[in-house]
Amino acid sequence: MNKTFQLWNPSLLLGLAIVGLFAAMAISPGLFSSQDPAGLRLEHRLSAPSAANWFGTDGVGVDVYSRVVYGARTTLATIVVVLGIAILVGVSIGSVSGYLGGWIDGLLMRVADVFLAFPPLILALATNAVLGRGLQQTMFAVAFLWWPAYARLVRSQILAVRKLEFVESARAIGANELRIVGRHVLPNVLDPVIVRASLDAGFVALTAASLSFLGLGAQPPTPEWGRMVAEGQKFLLDQWWVATFPGISLFVLVIGFNLIGESLSGRMQSGLHVSRAEETEGR
């Protein structure tokens, strides 16, 4: 390979900068905004962006900028929880399935099939109808959608890795199976999982925001970008700022995650290329 992969290429840096900024907002929103994201001031409703309210105020007089800042917390928390659950469940089920094989593998994969058979948003809607509306329910509903993808990924990785030489040799020297999984198999499996998660993060944000836009996710007064766009819809013609700023924030965050995800997956693919090339040459 004549092209060497740049570790810190510009798109990765840009992505990290975007996500880092929003993460900072999520961790300490007080640093970015001194206003209460739930503080009603009816007499100041729908004021245009100004020095006092950078992004203007919404239909009940809350500062849109502070809602956007605090909204970052809602969105990022959703991403972390959803991917956390999905990875935890997916990796456990995928490892068990891939490692044990046999009828357990068959059963678990059929269960994953059932979940994969639902069109994504529809399953989230159905879950919402049963569990009720709210942020936690939405996180749960979206995590419900995502775990089978990780289970499949991990299973296929394990199937590939367990045949590799160093695993075989570990087994040959009589290492305990659990140790093999923990020491040798999982670390090799986690790389693709992390790449996949970085690619999924933006998509999770969009799905959760879509549910909130429909009125099913975060409930008022929790600041949430999708819900803010929905509330700002009727003001779009005159008070464009109510819907536009949260919409743009979501857009930028998703792009940030995509930049990171693609850089990472590009890196991994070129890495794979190298190893595959070595493999062929070695043969």
Partner: peptide, 15 residues
């Protein structure tokens, strides 16, 4: 009923 614009009523009561 948020779908018919009652969310502000809830907000005022909540505040």
């Amino acid at each position: 009923e948020g779908t018919t614009g009652e969310t502000p009523f809830f907000e005022i009561m909540r505040a």
